[in-house]
Every structure is written in C-alpha cells, then in structure tokens.
C-alpha cells in the first residue's frame, strides 16, 4: 500500500521538477480556451441552428458560402483547434481518473492523442483546400456565385 502525505506537508525536494509545468499550462488552457469557446460556440450555434430556417438551411451551398468568407474560415479554424484540444485534454483528465492499470491508461491516452491529431489535420485541410465550386457539380447544389465562373 502506498502512503499519502498529510495535507499541506512540505513537498519533498526530490518530487519537485524543473522546467515546464505541463499540468499547470493544461489547467490554464482549459480556462482560457473556455472563455473564447463561449463566444465561438454560441455564435456557431446561432448562425447554424437558430437564425433563418435553422438546421433546414444547411447544405453544401450554405457551407460553401460561409467558407468563401475569410471571417468564417478564421472562426471555424479557431473553433476546431480550441474545442478539440479542450475536449481531448478534458478526456485525458477522465482517463487519468478512471483507468485502473497503467496499460489501459496508456492505450486510451494514445488513442485520444491519435484521434485528436488526425481530426485536427483532417479538419484544417478541409477548411484550407475547400473548393466552393467543384468542377462538374450540378448548378443547383453549389452557391449562386459559382455561375459564370
């Protein structure tokens, strides 16, 4: 059985670490990203679910119209990176809390890190290589500004 020090007893010198305190910066990140995400997420939800015809308005032409505007490109990029890293770091906390063996902990942490990296790259590539007027697409499926291009 391991021993837990009495609360507030001085930290033994050997456990003090030098260098960057990752947990501290993770803690700060959760709060800093959370503040920005409040604006990004409620703006996102308002434009896509509430205004106009709500979810019924969403189709390829709707998304293409948004991604043709640098404002939404920046908005969506920030949303992707801040939310996914915030969520993954939160899941990391849950894995640390609930796994019972170092092996399951390792496997789950690697799975989350892999999923995060893959989705960040995929999402970023989609935003920056997107073509609102793909060649050969039916005219009724693409934004109206594609006519005459």
């Amino acid at each position: 059985m391991t021993t837990i020090e009495a609360p507030r007893s001085p930290k033994p010198a050997r456990t003090r670490r030098r260098g960057i305190n990752g947990e501290k910066w993770g803690w700060i990140y959760m709060r800093a990203s959370g503040l920005v995400l409040v604006i990004l997420i409620f703006g996102h939800l308002f434009v896509n679910l509430v205004s106009g015809k709500g979810v019924n308005a969403i189709d390829f032409a709707f998304v293409a119209g948004k991604l043709a505007d640098p404002f939404w490109v920046v908005w969506d990029t920030l949303l992707l990176w801040l939310a996914l890293i915030h969520g993954s770091n939160g899941i990391r906390t849950l894995i640390n809390d609930y796994t019972r063996t170092p092996l399951t902990r390792r496997i789950l942490l690697i799975a989350v890190a892999t999923a995060t990296a893959v989705l960040l790259i995929l999402g970023t590539l989609v935003i920056y290589t997107f073509d609102p007027c793909p060649a050969g697409a039916a005219a009724n499926l693409v934004p109206s500004f594609c006519q005459g291009r």
């Binding site: 059985m1 021993t3 020090e5 009495a6 507030r8």
Partner: peptide, 18 residues
Amino acid sequence: PDKTAGTLATTSRRAPVI
C-alpha cells in the same frame, strides 16, 4: 492512479492538524 489509494502518513510535526 496507483498512487491514490493508501493510508494517510502519520502527521509530521510541522504540518497543521486539520
């Protein structure tokens, strides 16, 4: 996780009793 279960260390002289 394996460090979280265990007994409380006997209170050292310097630590306040809570």
